[in-house]
Nucleic acid binder design. Sequence first.
DNA 1: ACCCGAAAGTAGACATTGACTAGTTTCTAG
DNA 2: CTAGAAACTAGTCAATGTCTACTTTCGGGT
Lengths: 206, 206
Amino acid sequence: MSTFGYRGPVSDRPFHHGNLRAVLLDQAETVLRERGIDALSLRELAREAGVSHGAPRSHFIDRNALLDALAERGFVRLADEIRDAVSRAPGDHARVLRAAGSAYLRFAVREPALLDLMFATKVDGPSGAVRSAAERLFDTMTGIMGVGVEAGAYDAGDVGRLTLLLSATVQGISALVTSRRIPTPQGEALVDDAITIFLAGVSAVR
Amino acid sequence: MSTFGYRGPVSDRPFHHGNLRAVLLDQAETVLRERGIDALSLRELAREAGVSHGAPRSHFIDRNALLDALAERGFVRLADEIRDAVSRAPGDHARVLRAAGSAYLRFAVREPALLDLMFATKVDGPSGAVRSAAERLFDTMTGIMGVGVEAGAYDAGDVGRLTLLLSATVQGISALVTSRRIPTPQGEALVDDAITIFLAGVSAVR
DNA sequence: ACCCGAAAGTAGACATTGACTAGTTTCTAG
DNA sequence: CTAGAAACTAGTCAATGTCTACTTTCGGGT
C-alpha cells in the first residue's frame, strides 16, 4: 500500500492513511457483527488498520464517538434498505408495509449488535447526528405510511401516530428476535400478523 | 498474607461480608440507573461494598455474570410490577391490558439501562437463568391475555401469538421512549393507541 | 468436640484499554 | 512559499477485568 511513500517512517506505509475514518468504521462494523460490542476496541481497530493507537483520535474523540458514528450509519443504511425493499415491492398498501417490516427485521437479524447500539439508552440522550439520522429513518417510514392515506387506509392527521406505532411494533419484534426470545421465522410471521391486525384495527377504529 | 497477624483485618469488619452478592446487585442496579452501564465496574462495586477487588469473583465469575444476574432480576421485577398493576386495575379486558402496558413503560422509564440489558444482544444468546426469567415474564403476560379468551376477545389458540405481538409492541414503544426518540407522555399515549388498535384489529380479523 | 473440605475473601500480578500529551509529518489555503 | 491546521506517532497514566496463590471462616459428618 505504499503507492507513494518514498520517505515514510520505518515502514513504507505513508504517514497519512488516506481514509482512516471510513476504514475504522467498516472494521468496527465487522467486529460488532462478529464479536459483539464488548470486543470493539479502538486500539485493535488501529492495529488492524496499520496505524498507531492514537490515530483514531483524529477522527473520533471518544470510543463513544465511534459508536455514535456507527449508530448513525446504521440508521442511514436501515432507511436505505427499507426504501429499497418498498420500491421493489409494488402492490397494495399491506404488501408495501410487509416489505418494509420484513426489511427491518432482516436488518436486525443481520446486524443485531448494531441495532442495539442504535436504540441504546445513553445517559444524556442520543447525539445530534444520531438523533437526526433516526429522524430520517422515521421520515422514511412516514413516507411509506403516507401512501396509505391516499389509498384511504387512514386519515392524514393520524399518520404520525400510526407510523410511530407500527415502527415501534416492528422494532419490538426485532428485539425479541435479536435477543433470542423467539426464532427468526417466528419473528417474520409476527411481522405479518402485526401488519394484518394493525390495518384491520385502524380501519375498524376510525 | 498475615500482615495483620492473627486478628481480623484492620477494621472491625468481619471477614465474611454476609450478603455480598445481594449488596453488589443492589449497588450495581443503582449505578446502572444513575450512570449507565459503562460506569459499572466490578472493582468500584467491591470498593463501595468494603471488600477487596477480588471478592465479587466468589459470586460472579465474570462481569458478564453480574450483568446476567441483573437482567434476570429485572425480568422478575418487571413481571411482579405488571402483575401488581393488573391486580390493582380491575375492569374490562382493555383496561387490564392498559394497566399492564403502562406498568411496562413505567418500568422502562425508571430503569432504561436495565431494560437495555434485559434485551441486549449477546453473542451466544441469553444465559439459561436470563432466558427462563424472560419466559416467566412472558408467562405472566400470557396469563393476563388469557383472561381475554374467557371474555371472548380472542380464541384460545391465538393467545400465544397475540401475547407475543402485544409484548413486542409495548417493548418497542419502551425502546422509543428510553432511547429518547419520543417523550414519555407520547409513549404513554402510544401504549393506549396500541391496545385500542390491537383489540379492534383482533376482533375484526377473526 | 473435632476435623476437614468447601465457600468466601485478601492481595498481588498482568495484559489491555481509553484517554491524554507533546512532538512530528503532511496537507492545504492564502 | 509559507504558516497553520490536520493527521499521525509515541509515550505515559490510571483503571479495569481476570487470574492465581493464599488465608480465613463456615458448616456438616463423625
